[in-house]
Design a protein around this nucleic acid. Structure first.
Length: 451
DNA sequence: CGATTTTGACCTGCGC
DNA sequence: GCGCAGGTCAAAATCG
């Protein structure tokens, strides 16, 4: 055994077995060699010298005597010391890696949240620009104007932008809490002014806004055999009526995630096409929402805020029915319509259209759902139609999980993403997807078993 | 046994 | 005032 072989033999059996940590081992070895004290280095040199030469000519004080047996014994002493040090360092590094993983996870969550907020703001900004362009032709705000203090920007900064910022700074849980309605008209046509939101807002004003938001409805049309879409909230059925002109009844649900939550929703099948499920949301949540409920709630709240703020008018909707849908759900090909004849202002998001693959070529930053580091995406099944109950739901969940794995493994992000969404919309939602309770005819609302 | 669903009755707004 | 339709209430039934 030569002098060079000795350090290599110090590798612990466990670390030798762990191929993945070999690099860390080697880095440890060199760092330890660098960190040796002067005395140790001298001893080490002396030891090497001793191993290289048969007769020892220097007394190092470490009882390094001549003879191969003794020198080997000292070598093992050094080896044991180094092993202990390396073990402690490995333990420390493991702990550090754990901390870094936690930090990484936390940053992922923050990034996902920021992406969501960013998309919301961008959507509103684009919509405001679109409206301004159609009205005045003056669409561009200079950087100076945008950077002005808020107090001096009245009449320049789109009100929705500040409302969106309020969402970001407030409890952006996907509910309507931070949305301040301007539907009662502090704006004129083509001249939107900013009413800075202050904590001193009168209660009556808030109540009026709540009442307005309560009346606003966001209707989502999806193609599904499931009795009800799963949007992450807990609902309790409190009534059912046969709607006029429809063969299927209309079911009434209220949110039961918090006592006194005013949010209600109606579930009804389309009279013309009973494979289409129409879900109408109304009101604002008065409680934090779980992550699974944030996607749908943020989508509907975004649509409601745009509707109530007048960002998109009925005329806009008629001129470009895809505008709102693109703003709210950038990666779908659905259409959005606004009903002016309905008793309440209602925006309908039609997600029954087949997906347009070209729209998936958008940058990933445009996507409104987050992809957790581990596990399945939380938003895809809720946003794109519905996650079905029981077996169907599990089937879609498995599909999403597989898609997630493909996403994380495949460098071609957009292609994998398109495959994932296509599998969800085209397979699970389209009514042809597998499921134990396929009966050939769509389930009516009165047969439902909501979660 | 508590939570949820069912279902008939009741309330409200609107048009005639 | 009356009828209709949409929406809600609440007691009974059902479920897990």
């Amino acid at each position: 055994m030569g002098p060079v072989d000795l350090p290599m033999s110090l590798t612990s059996p466990t670390m030798e077995a762990d191929e993945d940590r070999r690099v860390v081992n080697e880095m440890d070895f060199f760092s330890m060699e660098k960190s040796r004290t002067e005395t140790e280095q001298e001893a080490y040199k002396a030891q090497n010298l001793n191993l290289e030469k048969e007769d020892l000519t220097m007394d190092t004080g470490l009882h390094l005597l001549s003879g191969s047996d003794l020198s080997m014994g000292d070598g093992f002493l050094v080896a044991a010391q180094e092993t202990d040090e390396r073990k402690s360092e490995i333990t420390a590094m493991k702990a550090k890696m754990g901390q870094m993983e936690e930090e990484n996870q936390r940053l992922r969550n923050i990034l996902a949240q920021m992406n969501q907020n960013y998309n919301f703001l961008q959507m509103q900004f684009i919509s405001v620009m679109h409206k301004n362009k159609s009205m005045t032709g003056n669409t561009n705000l200079s950087n100076e104007e945008l950077n002005k203090p808020e107090e001096g920007r009245e009449g320049i900064v789109p009100k929705q932008f500040l409302e969106g910022r309020c969402l970001t700074e407030g409890n952006f849980n996907g509910d309507y809490c931070a949305l301040k309605s301007s539907f009662n008209g502090d704006q004129e046509e083509g001249k939107e002014t900013v009413s800075l939101l202050s904590s001193s807002s009168s209660k009556s004003c808030e109540q009026a806004q709540e009442a307005t938001m309560r009346k606003a409805r966001v209707s989502v049309r999806v193609r599904s055999d499931a009795p009800m879409i799963t949007d992450g909230c807990h609902w309790r059925k409190y009534g059912q009526k046969m709607a006029k002109g429809s063969t299927c009844p209309r079911a009434y649900y209220r949110c039961t995630m918090a006592v006194g939550c005013p949010v209600r929703k109606q579930v009804q099948r389309c009279a013309d096409d009973q494979t289409i499920l129409i879900t109408s949301y109304e009101g604002k949540h008065n409680h934090p929402l779980p992550p699974a409920a944030m996607s749908m709630a943020s989508t509907t709240s975004a649509a409601a805020s745009m509707l109530l703020s007048g960002t998109i008018s009925s005329a806009d909707s008629l001129m470009n029915p895809n505008l709102l849908a693109q703003a709210v759900l950038p990666c779908t090909s659905g259409f959005a319509t606004i009903s002016a004849s309905a008793p309440f202002p209602t925006v309908t998001l039609d997600l029954t259209q087949p997906p347009n693959p070209l729209q998936f070529q958008k940058p990933s930053s445009q996507l409104q759902f987050s992809i957790p580091a581990i596990g399945r995406p939380t938003a895809i099944p809720q946003i794109f139609g519905q996650s079905l109950q029981s077996e169907e739901q599990q089937s879609i969940a498995d599909t999403v999980s597989a898609a997630t794995a493909a996403l994380t493994a495949n460098p071609n992000f957009t292609a994998a993403l398109a495959a994932a969404i296509t599998s969800i919309i085209g397979g699970g939602v389209g009514g042809s997807g597998g499921g134990a309770h396929q009966t050939g005819s769509p389930a009516c609302v009165n047969d439902d078993t909501p979660s």
